[in-house]
Amino acid sequence: MIPAAFDYVRAGSVDEAVRVLGERGEDAKVLAGGQSLIPLLRLRLSYPEVVVDVGRVEEMHGVREDGEHLVIGAMTTHAEVIDSDLVRTHCGLLSEATETVADPAVRHRGTFGGSLAHADPAGDLPAVALALDAEFVIAGSGGRRTVPAQGFFVDYLQTAVGADEVLVEVRLPKLGAGWGHRYEKFHRVAQSWAIVGVAAVVHRSNGSIDQARIGLTNMGPTPLRASAVEQALSGADVSGIGAAAEHAADDTSPASDLGGAADYRQHLARVLTRRAVSAAAGG
């Protein structure tokens, strides 16, 4: 199928992108790697009047360190994230989860920022961003602002990025010693989206879990933190993981669709959370 016609602006800088978005606002769509947007355009499920291509904005590319944070440019491709030693060393959960995103060809084009800004609840990276306590740097006409992960995912396919704004980069706190991680993705075939995914980072000291952050994929219109599990894990040893994981579906209202009905998703969330946390805790 064939996209409807649109105007095209290749932004040379964040400022230029913001300026065009300011002028065209709701009629504009930001093009990152295009791996979600272009299929939507082809199916004519999206009809922008103008597409603002930020794929070549230099400052939006690459992974760098900034003190206790990693900073990942929004246009860094999934393949670049996977290949990044910095990411693997300091945010291994992201490396692991990104390897499960789509397929190699899509990972060559698709971007970290594009996936997060698209905010598909079945996408793998939003839940990972939650578990990693990411901060999102958003540029608009009034300058730049930083939004914490908990405030970024607003609703189904909606984020804190306004129509005249661009997600520039994502800041991730480095995980130091004692942290373990696991992304448990459950899907029917290699190509299909996660029915449920669980992204867990767990910190252990003196044999017990003192901190855990767990993000849930596809358990609602936005990615969710499994807060009840996190609380139950605090201070628990590995033998308490099973009981804690029973809270994984608390306060969730997942969709019923071809992938699974809500009750099945809730069941999966509990099983996968137990497995993810056990693996992350080295148990």
């Binding site: 029917r188 075939v189 290699a190 989206w193």
Partner: peptide
């Protein structure tokens, strides 16, 4: 092909 699941090599 998003919803009609034709198996790929890993499946």
């Amino acid at each position: 092909l998003v919803d009609y699941l034709v198996p790929a090599a890993p499946d």
